[in-house]
Design a protein around this nucleic acid. Structure first.
Lengths: 217, 217
DNA sequence: GTCTATACATTGATAGAC
DNA sequence: GTCTATCAATGTATAGAC
């Protein structure tokens, strides 16, 4: 199970618990996490878990927090490594997509509410809030660069961006959770989905290309 | 609980069970359905449920089947009652959105996979398959009417349509499941989300309005 | 088609020894 | 920080009387 270096039982039991938790969720569904099963896999007795986490929800909360933090890191890094504006947005979309497909369980925990009683704590949720800010800033950059219409820099712009990205990813996770980013029927359309967003908010350069009223159904 | 007309205990116990099941799912989460709790609410003992349904999964399956059938009906009716092509599509989108917000639990069961072990039977899934056909036909009508580019009449077109619609609805269900169709932060953007799709597949009438390469990210 | 009784499994959590 | 022992719930499902 783990390397024992000295008298202490294992190097980092807490880490092992969290990894086992994700493993169990992958097999039984996100809502199917069980501390008994986790303990079995880590090789300790179930009551011992309570020395590391106060409750089942505390485990969920930490998986959520780490997942949200990782997502923020990955996106922020993608943005930093690209030209501000549309290139940064495109890089962020791809980064989110690859991360979600590599960690389907965590992605489901973050974007749905699959566990009846569990609501993430404020602290666990913080990185997600911060990521909305990153997206908003990137949208603003794209507007400043003349790549998007000013209307994109708004709550509505952020919401539509999230609809498109989360839409592709959750459809993928619900229908073919084990596909790869490249081969998934929906995840492979993520670039196209993103292109829909970009085109929708294309700058009206001198009105040469008319765009229909946005709120007309 | 129910009207008793004669010696028989109730008019339709099966119906009451299904209704109670949805109620329980609404309170405990879709994965939190329990036959014991359902029995309690219907006013019978838990073993009696097995005279009506073979197992817990059988209850899930029937809720799924009825939900899928209702969705198909509602969409088909919206399409029939509108001019073929874009008007029919717009009507379908609105119908799907209103139905989902009126029945959030069923919508979650249909569009996510929230229950660890449960997979809908082929029969329960049939209406959903049929609905893909309805969407495809409507896309074809829109292309024939010159309202959409021929590229929209494809598997990719159907997938992108579903990404946009399911994206808006699942974001809404995950974040504000109790909002109304009109007031939800995401569901209220459904028309805009749909407009993104329409604009993306706008016919290139004589190339007067250029559209970027679709698969370029 | 409803009931009682019961088998059987699983779980989250606590107390207290070491 | 790990263990044993235990509690108290909850759950699905079956057998068999009426």
């Amino acid at each position: 199970m783990a390397v024992r270096t000295d008298g202490r039982r294992r190097v980092d039991t807490r880490r092992e618990i969290l990894d086992a938790a994700v493993e169990v969720m992958a097999e039984r569904g996100v809502a199917g996490l069980s501390l008994s099963e986790v303990a079995r896999r880590v090789g300790i007795k179930q009551p011992s878990l309570y020395k590391h986490f106060a409750s089942l929800h505390a485990v969920y909360d930490e998986v959520f927090r780490e997942g949200a933090e990782r997502q923020l890191e990955v996106v922020a890094q993608a943005v930093r490594g690209s030209t501000p504006g549309l290139p940064a947005m495109a890089a962020a979309v791809e980064a989110m997509g690859r991360l979600a497909m590599a960690n389907p369980v965590v992605a489901q925990l973050l974007s749905w509410r699959p566990v009846p009683d569990f609501t993430p704590s404020e602290e666990a949720f913080r990185p997600s809030v911060e990521m909305v800010g990153v997206v908003r800033t990137t949208l603003r950059d794209a507007v400043a660069a003349g790549e998007l219409d000013p209307a994109a820099d708004s709550d509505e712009g952020v919401a539509l961006f999230s609809i498109v990205v989360a839409g592709a990813l959750t459809q993928q996770l619900a229908n073919e959770p084990n596909a790869t980013y490249e081969d998934g029927r929906f995840s492979s359309l993520l670039p196209s989905a993103y292109a829909m967003f970009v085109q929708y908010f294309a700058p009206k350069a001198g009105e040469s290309c008319t765009r229909p009223e946005r709120d007309r159904l």
